[in-house]
Computed example of a mutant assay.
Amino acid sequence: MKTIAYFLSLVFLVTSLAPAAVAKDVKEENSLTPEEELRLEEISERVAEIRAMDFAKMSKAEKRELRKELREINKETKALSGGVYLSVGAIIVILLILILIT
């Protein structure tokens, strides 16, 4: 029983410290190139323009086009930032699998 408790405490310790260590490496590796920084600046300016627009005077088609454009911008910015994210549910499932295996 003690060995299981020690093992679980070790697993929780490693899983709590590992993301911080990986995050530091990812930030250094995924530094943006000047072209990517310029593109992100253009995207942020375009989003600011869209937010400044008066949507009450627009037709449904125009609003739909803007929504599509914003979705594409969102996808592009996610691709440029490039991060790996784990949800809490995924972490719980991984821990349960590890517990069941031992």
Rank of each mutant, 00 (worst) to 15 (best):
I4Y: 08
A5T: 09
A5Q: 09
A5V: 11
Y6H: 09
Y6C: 07
L8P: 00
L8M: 14
L10M: 14
V11C: 07
V11K: 01
L13Y: 06
V14Q: 01
T15Y: 10
T15V: 12
S16P: 00
L17T: 07
L17M: 13
A18R: 06
P19S: 05
A20G: 12
A21E: 05
A21S: 09
V22W: 05
V22F: 12
V22Q: 03
A23S: 13
A23Q: 12
A23M: 11
K24S: 13
K24W: 08
K24F: 09
D25E: 12
D25Y: 06
V26M: 10
V26E: 11
V26I: 12
V26H: 04
K27F: 06
E28G: 04
E29N: 06
N30T: 09
N30P: 03
N30D: 05
T33F: 05
T33G: 05
T33I: 04
P34M: 03
E35I: 08
E35Q: 15
E36S: 13
L40C: 03
L40E: 03
L40R: 05
E42H: 04
I43P: 04
S44E: 15
V47C: 02
V47Y: 01
V47N: 05
A48V: 05
E49N: 09
E49A: 08
I50M: 06
I50N: 01
I50E: 00
R51A: 13
R51S: 13
R51T: 10
D54W: 00
D54H: 01
F55E: 14
A56Q: 15
M58F: 00
K60W: 03
A61D: 15
E62G: 06
E62A: 07
K63H: 02
R64T: 14
R67W: 02
R67C: 04
K68P: 02
K68G: 14
K68Q: 15
E69R: 03
L70A: 03
L70E: 03
L70K: 06
I73F: 02
N74M: 06
N74A: 12
K75V: 10
K75W: 06
K75L: 14
T77E: 14
T77Y: 00
K78W: 09
L80M: 15
L80E: 02
L80Q: 02
L80I: 15
S81I: 11
G83T: 12
L86P: 02
L86I: 08
L86W: 10
S87V: 04
S87Y: 06
V88D: 15
G89C: 00
A90P: 01
A90N: 10
I91L: 15
I92D: 11
I92Q: 11
I92N: 10
I92H: 06
L95E: 02
L96C: 13
L96Q: 03
L98A: 13
L98M: 14
L100R: 06
